[in-house]
Amino acid sequence: MKIVVCIKQVPDTKGGVKFNPDGTLDRAAMMTIMNPDDKAGLEAALRLKDQYGAEVTVITMGLPKAEDVLREAMAMGADKGILVTDRVLGGADTWATSQTLAGAIRNLEYDLIITGRQAIDGDTAQVGPQISEHLGIPVISYAQKIEIDGDSVIVERQYDDRYHVLKAKMPCLITALAELNAPRYMTPGGIFDACDAEITVWGRANLVDVEDSNLGLKGSPTQIAKASDKVRKGQGEKINKDVTESVDYIVDKLKVRHVI
């Protein structure tokens, strides 16, 4: 079985969010981590590898320094890493990103593609499903459990109050939730091997069946006007009343503010 896992290097919000003067994220100035949903997706792939045997390829699109996140994935147990980087790919929104990744993945053989549900810097949850559309394969999103059954996958898709069990023939794409599992640690030996390993670097020329008009900033229908740090909420108000009085109190407050 061949599994491709799409991962993204995202800012580590624990280190503080920093902005450029134009309001966009200053990625170079921030600490970075592997996007948590993607890490769960990678762990899911590695567990399938442990259980059934598989070759796991991790792929990322980003600046040259995104190579670090590939090495981290390989130190956890991924077999190969592919970095898609090119100036013409910069400023991509979800559409241009999914076009790029699909164009890269067309070079690869795969039974399963796993992406994270969404990245903590954009929170769109669009790239995974878009890749599946571009490649013309089924997608099962919000996976909380993944099993292999012959040439199919059986996935529990999470909802707020229930889950669906879906079966799809491979090849297909699954988007993973951070809650799917507790990702393993890198191993010291894995780190040494990953640092010695070759990372495949692809640029625009390596993308298959993608129009220039669908790439980078120019190919992005969405433009970010401004990004800002999270505004801290106040302490809130604690009340100590019985249930009926509490409900009345809250309803009154909401009415005054014209929420209801």
Binding site: R184, M186, T187, P188, G189, F192
Partner: peptide
């Protein structure tokens, strides 16, 4: 043990991490 910390400088041929 699972993370490989108990065999860091042991060569891989003996099941260590080879670091």
């Amino acid at each position: 043990a699972k993370a490989g910390f108990m065999g860091i400088p042991i060569p891989k041929e003996y099941g260590g991490q080879g670091c």
